[in-house]
Amino acid sequence: MTLLLKQLFGFFKLLHSETGNNQLAWGVALGFILGMTPALSLQTLLVFFCLFFFRIQIGAAFLAAFFFKFIAYLLDPVFDVVGQKVLDLPALQGLFTDLYNMPIIPFTRFNNSIVMGSGVVAIILVPFIFAGAKWAIVKYRISVVEKFRETKIFKIWTKTSLYQWYYKYDSYFGN
């Protein structure tokens, strides 16, 4: 829980900093994949591995996963249809049979229509989600954060000893 909260605080901190656009955008994109995938499967573990191994904002990923989970719930019928269409493609039957009989691959549960459907939709949409998230973060920083920094309240706040103390603490122990 502490780790999760730290990641969430890190997400807001990074969102309001001037760096880490890609980290946040990838976090949102991978969170989108997590949210779309219906259950624990090999690809979920792969996404988790990426989150922990690469410098991707985990808080952003969890928040995005939480958000997209609700959307995915509504989209389940669509994923089911897409998944069935893909799994029923005659041209791919040989490939699927091979995959089904290969080691490890069955752990992906690719033969389930919703897993397949959500996976296909997620893979197709991930670049767009990444690009959209990045554009939204930059836009947010310019239109919201910068304007907020210019306000008198924020300037007064930065002059307080509490802020000074936090800033100093963060320079030593942050990140």
């Binding site: 219906p38 019928p77 039957q93 699927f96 089904y100 009989n101 033969n111 389930n112 229509s113």
Partner: peptide
């Protein structure tokens, strides 16, 4: 059920 989707069983050849 729709929520759990449909699980396909492909021919077992090597498995």
């Amino acid at each position: 059920k729709r929520a759990t989707g449909k699980t396909y069983e492909f021919p077992i050849t090597k498995s």
